[in-house]
Design a binder for these strands. Sequence first.
DNA 1: AATGAATGAGAGTTCATTCAT
DNA 2: AATGAATGAACTCTCATTCAT
Lengths: 239, 239, 239, 239
Amino acid sequence: MRAPFDGAVAGVTASAPHAMIRTPRANAAAKAKPAGRTRRQEKAEQVRLALFDAAARVVGKHGYAGASVARITTLAGVAQGTFYNYFASRQDLLDQLLPAMGEEMLAHIAAEVRGERDEVAREERRFRAFFGFLQKRPAFLRILNEAEVYAPRGFRAHFANIAAEYRRALERAHERGALPGFADDEIEPLVFLLMAARSYTSLRYAQGPAGRVKAPPESLIRAYVKLLRHGLAGGTAGP
Amino acid sequence: MRAPFDGAVAGVTASAPHAMIRTPRANAAAKAKPAGRTRRQEKAEQVRLALFDAAARVVGKHGYAGASVARITTLAGVAQGTFYNYFASRQDLLDQLLPAMGEEMLAHIAAEVRGERDEVAREERRFRAFFGFLQKRPAFLRILNEAEVYAPRGFRAHFANIAAEYRRALERAHERGALPGFADDEIEPLVFLLMAARSYTSLRYAQGPAGRVKAPPESLIRAYVKLLRHGLAGGTAGP
Amino acid sequence: MRAPFDGAVAGVTASAPHAMIRTPRANAAAKAKPAGRTRRQEKAEQVRLALFDAAARVVGKHGYAGASVARITTLAGVAQGTFYNYFASRQDLLDQLLPAMGEEMLAHIAAEVRGERDEVAREERRFRAFFGFLQKRPAFLRILNEAEVYAPRGFRAHFANIAAEYRRALERAHERGALPGFADDEIEPLVFLLMAARSYTSLRYAQGPAGRVKAPPESLIRAYVKLLRHGLAGGTAGP
Amino acid sequence: MRAPFDGAVAGVTASAPHAMIRTPRANAAAKAKPAGRTRRQEKAEQVRLALFDAAARVVGKHGYAGASVARITTLAGVAQGTFYNYFASRQDLLDQLLPAMGEEMLAHIAAEVRGERDEVAREERRFRAFFGFLQKRPAFLRILNEAEVYAPRGFRAHFANIAAEYRRALERAHERGALPGFADDEIEPLVFLLMAARSYTSLRYAQGPAGRVKAPPESLIRAYVKLLRHGLAGGTAGP
DNA sequence: AATGAATGAGAGTTCATTCAT
DNA sequence: AATGAATGAACTCTCATTCAT
């Protein structure tokens, strides 16, 4: 709700699909008093969050290549050494960035799609929600973009998350008979084709100057919907 | 046929759509004796080519991040300092890599599409030809992938090249009435959606272990063609 | 018999020849109630012992260089900060390690020598007992080895201990007329020459792979005894 | 002859038992003009020597642990990066230090021993020459001492060198009948016992304050000679 | 007395670029 | 035009020690 990541990190912790997330706190947790978190734990969590948040901002602004530990810790307001109390390495944090924000994105999109029955309309909502999320979290665009190269482990985790979610959605649609012409082994390719549309066009249309993020033009959404509804024929007969 | 890039580089030099490509050679060319190239010029061109070729191989194998000037010059068999007689900076060469290979790719695809009239069938041919090219030039997949992050200028130049070519094709199709449902301002989005499909799926399907490049599965191509032909409905009525 | 050092440390405390050994406990000891140790004191002594024992194990396995406070406290099962309640610094503990084990070694050797009257035979027993001790306490070999460089104060203390003991033995032998050719001022050099033999050959012959400790070959002991009995002539006339 | 290492390094290069010695120059050497060294090569050799010399001084003064690349390069008057043009790593240089000086030591000792026939007298000369060398190269004492722990590869190389040399000498003596009481398999132990005497006593007697090196007392040498000549009996009958 | 997170100086190493030869 | 050694800033990471809780 407020600073980036408050929600995102909580989301990750909740669903916890990231074996790589591990902080010093983890050990101490075992000895924790049953009655709620201690002050120390709270403070530690704050620092962790501050580092996470700082990393997201720094990557958003300078890219992964420019995300030095020095920059991140300075922005977070802690000493460089402190970083290594929370993350095993620079790469460790970098690899957690995308999956964490990805969870948040998924939640954001899911909320927008709820209620719509028609599959193309659902996809249109997802598409719009994706772009909406980019505006809510401008850093995400760059993080998403560069992660494949700079944080491949994190990228793969995120990719698997998103693809699994998408696949579930398309498989349900398939069962409902909403994708009549497609065979079972064509669902996965379809997943990637839809992810491609979203991801690739965001690079062209959302990326503004100086890290700014723009809303996508309606013509893009119209073209996408037509393609999904009728293919390249685009709906000859008109709506 | 033989070493990568002999053709590619020639192609670039020929069509020269890259404002950023400018080397010390350019100056020398101005002074060239009218009667053909001197020995010196030929030798220089050879060195330039060797550096280019070495860079492509190195990036293909080690990625842009691992493409140090030392590695490139060692592979090319020249001293490190020599590099800067031909390229303004490491980045300069890196930015020329993708546009050069992109020209070659364009030529390869154009040759495969020739003769086909149906627009969906043409796109299928392009799609197949793209994957075919990846197998011919395995290094291209990695270069294409990483360029956006490591050689953004080069990536943009390449992207503009490809998009322009695509746009021309789709606009001709549009004029022929092959994209009946689409408005003028939806052609460009369509271009990006088709590029997205090609580019994004290549990452998922073509990337084999250890830099190997695989052929795409037929299910992917079937799904793509169905999507183009009928949208998500996928051709309920059958072909 | 059980955890290393129970005895060793007790020994140190008993004979206390180490001016440098002084821990927070020492203060507490002053305030001790006359009637035996309190629970608190016992607990504290346990922690001290645990740290000591952990340090010996860590140095035995990872060497002094790898004996970080973090590793030692983790193995001892206490927090890092606790360390500084018992030792003034990392170096302080490290410097106590060798003298403590050295006392144990001395006791071990003394027990083996008892009863033998011939001086060369006594030295042979010491020599064998030294190697025997190494096998009983494998960590000692590494500690002894590295202490000179990493814990020079501790090394000097240990060295002085051993040399003093040795000197006492040789002086008694001298008085008995067992070292007929040597002048008074040659006793000390002799001490160092005997210590040299023991210490140096242990590095060559006892050190096995992966911290394992081997028994010395009999040929070494034969050569040593011959040297002591007859010099380089080695006993031409037979024994 | 002048600055430390001029000779030492040459010595190493000559007998070259150190597979680990490798500098960038090695490549270039292949292309070298036949007619003598170029200026560049000479300069490079100078820098290499300067680094070597600086390293020896630094280790002599601050120990291996204090021999940071920064200190070494500062003393040598070159930039830190330059270091890595000559040595693969800090450890690489550190491992070369002892073998290089060891060769010089060997030469020094050999020169002193020449001419003497009696084996004990030869060993006395070696012993004296060893201490003499320590005074000529004060840094050597510390380097020798710490190498086992900080530069184990270098130490092993040096140790093997010295032991081989010694062994050759003792085997020749053995063949001459100079070590009448010793069996073949006792020669090696003898080698180590003599090396022990030299090495260990140097720590006790040569080490002065502040890296100063003292001459050994005559009593040490007398004791040593007596031990070698008659064993612990020390020559009852007198000379 | 025990905790353990925070600190920050300092380590080794890399590499694009320069420039005297 | 070619060389390749020199440069030095920048990087990630370690760890003994401190100190508020």
